[in-house]
C-alpha cells in the first residue's frame, strides 16, 4: 500500500522535482566534505541543529512571529496596491501621478526601508510590517495597473451594451483578466515579503527567524544559521504551494487547452 502511494506520489513531474532537490543536497554534502564543518555544515548537522531548535522551543514562536510580520505586510501591500493599481489602470491622470511614485519606491533598497522603519517605529513588530508593505506594495500596484489597463475594450463595450450591473462587470470582465497579471506578481511579492520580514527582524531584535539568525551569527554557529535558512525556505514553499498555487489553478481552469498551456 505504502509503496504504491509513494510510487504514485513521485510520478511524472514530481519525480524530476525530487531529483532536483536531491542534486542540491548532494552538492551541499560534497561542499561540506571539501570545506569542513565551519564553512558548510553537512545537511545532517543542519537537521540536528533544526531538531535542537525545535526541542529548545525556539522554532515555533519564531515561525509565528515571522509569519505574522510577513503576512501582515503582504496583506496591507496587496489591499492598497491592488486598489490603487486598479484605479490607476482606469484613470490616466491618477496613473500618471502614481506611476513615478511607485517606480521611486521600487528603487529604494529594501534594507533602507528596514533601517528607516526601525528609526520610525522602534523595535515594535510594526517596523517589520511596514518595511514589508512598502517594499512589496509597488510591485502589486504595478501589476494591478497593467492588468486593469489592458482589459479588452470590446468586452467592456459588450458588457455595457447588455446593461450588465457594475458589480458583475467587475467580477466577470475585469477580475479574471486582472488576476492573470496579479497572481504571478503576488507570488513574487509573497516571496519577497518573507525576505524583507527576516531582514527587519534581524536588525530589530524583536523576535522571529531574523532574530534567531542574528543570535546564531553572534555565536558563530553555522549549523544553526543554516537551520534557520532551511526554515525560511520551507515556509515560503509551503505557503506558495498551499495558497498561491491553488488560487491560481482555480482562477485559470479556463486556460486549459489554450495554445502554450497544459491540456
Amino acid at each position: 500500500m505504502a509503496g504504491r502511494f509513494w510510487r504514485r506520489f513521485f510520478s511524472g513531474e514530481r519525480r524530476w522535482a525530487a531529483l532536483g532537490i536531491l542534486a542540491v543536497l548532494a552538492l551541499w554534502e560534497a561542499g561540506h566534505r571539501v570545506y569542513g564543518d565551519f564553512v558548510l555544515p553537512s545537511p545532517l548537522a543542519t537537521l540536528t541543529a533544526l531538531g535542537r531548535l525545535t526541542l529548545d522551543g525556539d522554532l515555533g514562536p519564531a515561525i509565528l512571529t515571522t509569519t505574522r510580520d510577513a503576512l501582515s505586510g503582504f496583506l496591507v501591500a496587496t489591499l492598497i496596491g491592488s486598489l490603487l493599481g486598479g484605479l490607476a489602470g482606469r484613470s490616466t491622470p491618477l496613473r500618471a501621478m502614481l506611476q513615478p511614485v511607485a517606480t521611486m519606491l521600487i528603487g529604494v533598497p529594501a534594507i533602507a526601508w528596514v533601517v528607516l522603519s526601525l528609526l520610525w517605529f522602534g523595535g515594535s513588530g510594526l517596523a517589520a510590517t511596514f518595511s514589508v508593505a512598502v517594499a512589496v506594495g509597488p510591485l502589486v500596484f504595478a501589476a494591478a495597473t497593467q492588468g486593469t489597463r489592458t482589459v479588452d475594450g470590446g468586452l467592456r463595450m459588450m458588457a455595457r451594451s447588455f446593461r450588465v450591473p457594475l458589480h458583475v462587470r467587475l467580477a466577470d470582465v475585469y477580475l479574471p483578466h486582472v488576476l492573470s497579471y496579479l497572481l504571478p506578481a503576488l507570488g513574487a511579492a509573497l516571496a519577497m515579503s518573507w525576505k524583507v520580514a527576516v531582514m527587519a527582524e534581524l536588525l530589530s531584535g524583536a523576535g522571529g527567524i531574523g532574530d534567531g539568525l542574528a543570535a546564531a551569527r553572534a555565536e558563530v554557529d553555522t549549523a544553526r544559521t543554516m537551520a534557520w535558512v532551511v526554515v525560511v525556505v520551507a515556509l515560503l514553499l509551503i505557503v506558495e504551494r498551499l495558497v498561491i498555487e491553488p488560487v491560481r489553478r482555480y482562477f485559470e481552469t479556463w486556460r486549459r487547452g489554450l495554445p502554450g498551456e497544459a491540456p
Binding site: G154, F162, V164, V168, D172, P176, W254
Partner: peptide, 20 residues
Amino acid sequence: DPLLLPWRTARGNVAFALTG
C-alpha cells in the same frame, strides 16, 4: 467580433447577458 468572455463557457457567456 463575437466578444465572448474567454473565461466563461458558451453557456456562461449567454447567461452573462442576463445578469441584469
